[in-house]
Design a protein around this nucleic acid. Structure first.
Lengths: 325, 325
DNA sequence: CTGTTAGCGCCTTCAT
DNA sequence: ATGAAGGCGCTAACAG
């Protein structure tokens, strides 16, 4: 690989001049400029990234960390981050998908060593990672949950779930069950809250919030259906904390002769890409995923570059009505 | 940020010693080692990434580029790449998801500037990007398709589709239709081939291979169903080039009173995570996605580090039988 | 086992 | 408008 020195020799100028041509072209004469361009072109010169960032305080790279992806939710976030980052000239270093073996330390070290300037973390449905003291003074922005006092973007689960419940109520549904992951606790709390608000009774037996891993979703839904069948308490509707969960219950309900939505209405959460392809299409809550990603990236870059950033940014959700409810 | 110099001063040793402690600890005495560790800890020292890579020829970063993700296929590949890369101490720089605005040049420049050592590209169902002369001498490994003579990993579409067709034949299906994207041309060719092999007639009218963007999948399937209904030629089975496509036709078939699989059997391709959640569950072809990612990463790293690598590596697929066929 | 020193490629005063 | 030279943080001979 040719270096600035080679270009300088080829163009019969000093390396300082070559450097100027690429960083501050205005101060060099047109004549030398063309000489340098020509030489650089001929040699196939590309400025060395490490050498450049060795001097500067900002590198132009951010780490994005998302948990295990079983739905397109995180992809959209990443895409948003990426789209925005690109406009500001930042590259994306990808963190581990699998949050279970999540090692924040490693990434913290990456930014401390200036391989990156900061990170955005999509905490998502995973609240179980502990604060890391070393991460104290590095730029971090999170999505969905707060983390160590850093700025974050989020959606209001209370508002969203409440809307869903109100929608069900408007459809004359009264016995509403809930199906969620352990990690989706806030949505569960929001659900209880919404019931209260709508003066509906909360029935623990119509609730399941135990499933944990991606593998367990389908069987988790099965257990739920089997239980309500066993105890003979069939809700007239079920609020699910994710679309995949919703698709799973629907399948088990149908298998057991229950019709959706006639006998039981089912709602999802996320509006994943295939939500409309299920039969029935899933009524669900859409979040502005890409926008959230963009916004997180924007906050992070502003923080990196030393600007003031807000503590948190809330986003609105939107109900998408299909056939399942 | 403290530098190696600060640590050296603090520990009363030379900077060379400090460097050794972190790069080649065996050659330094236990006593000085502890002194240095202690000093480093006290100062909160982290080696500077740029300075390090400025000296060395390899950076320890690879770019991974995948096209627009509408199914989990690419995620799994990325995860495989990531899992393997990590074991060899490599970081992942993420390329653009959206292949339409794909700018290979940009990434080529990144590796030329030594911000990364090479790249793996999941060409996937996108064959439409042209060779880039500048990419000539940088380490590249692709997935699915060959690109500029670089090593690649792939699955044998001919074998996979043939298996599917044979399976349908074994179920006494004879009039087999095909539904795919423009970009899935190889699967289409494989399909024609498989028909011939099984002495079945190919009927252009039962074929659609036009849909192009992610948006068009659902409507593409609709057009297909409407057409076969209009011309009154109903196939007894449809081979789809993806699961999402399969789910879409199934929905449209059902809406039009056709039963799947009784009237029309439908097969997918990819075995996406939610394939079993559709009703009926989709019979499909599973590819060892994560393994392909791992293998691509392995090839790339070996290439980066100067080892000999094979020209291409083929992977076996596996039929997953569910209810749709 | 440890220290000295010469760069890696680039940017940036400081002169000219 | 251009060149000379110091230094960013680190590694890798080379000496001892």
């Amino acid at each position: 690989m040719p270096s600035i020195k080679d270009v300088a020799r080829e163009a019969h100028v000093s390396i300082a001049t070559v450097s100027r041509v690429f960083n501050n072209p205005r101060v060099v004469s047109d004549e030398t400029k063309t000489k340098v361009y020509f030489a650089a072109e001929k040699l196939g010169y590309t400025p060395n990234f490490s050498a450049k960032t060795l001097k500067k305080s900002i590198v132009g790279t951010m780490i994005v960390i998302v948990p295990d992806i079983s739905n397109t939710f995180f992809i959209d976030i990443v895409r948003g981050v990426q789209n925005y980052a690109e406009t500001r000239g930042y590259n994306i270093l990808m963190g581990r998908f699998d949050i279970h073996r999540f090692d924040l330390q490693r990434y913290v070290r990456l930014v401390k060593s200036k391989a990156a300037d900061g990170m955005v973390i999509a905490i998502g449905h995973n609240r179980h990672f502990a604060p890391v003291p070393e991460a104290k003074d590095i730029p971090i922005v999170t999505i969905e949950e707060e983390f160590m006092g850093n700025p974050y973007v989020y959606i209001d689960n209370y508002q969203a779930i409440n809307e869903i419940v109100e929608y069900l109520v408007s459809k004359k549904r009264k016995r509403i069950g809930f199906l969620g992951f352990k990690s989706e606790r806030e949505r569960f709390l929001a659900f209880k809250n919404a019931l209260m608000k709508n003066k509906l009774e909360f029935d623990e037996e119509l609730t399941k919030k135990g499933a944990e891993s991606g593998e367990a979703v389908y069987t988790g839904a099965r257990e739920y259906v089997e239980r309500i069948l066993r105890i003979g308490k069939i809700p007239d509707s079920i609020v699910c904390a994710s679309d995949v969960l919703a698709a799973s219950v629907i399948k088990w309900l149908t298998k057991n002769g229950l019709r959706v939505p006639q006998d039981v209405a089912v709602t999802g959460f996320d509006n994943i890409e295939v939500a409309e392809l299920f039969q029935p299409g899933i009524t669900t809550v859409e979040q502005p995923r890409e926008t959230m990603g963009r916004e997180a990236a924007r906050l992070l870059i502003n923080k990196i570059e030393g600007h003031e950033v807000p503590k948190k940014i809330a986003f609105q959700t939107r109900i998408v009505i299909r056939e399942s409810a």
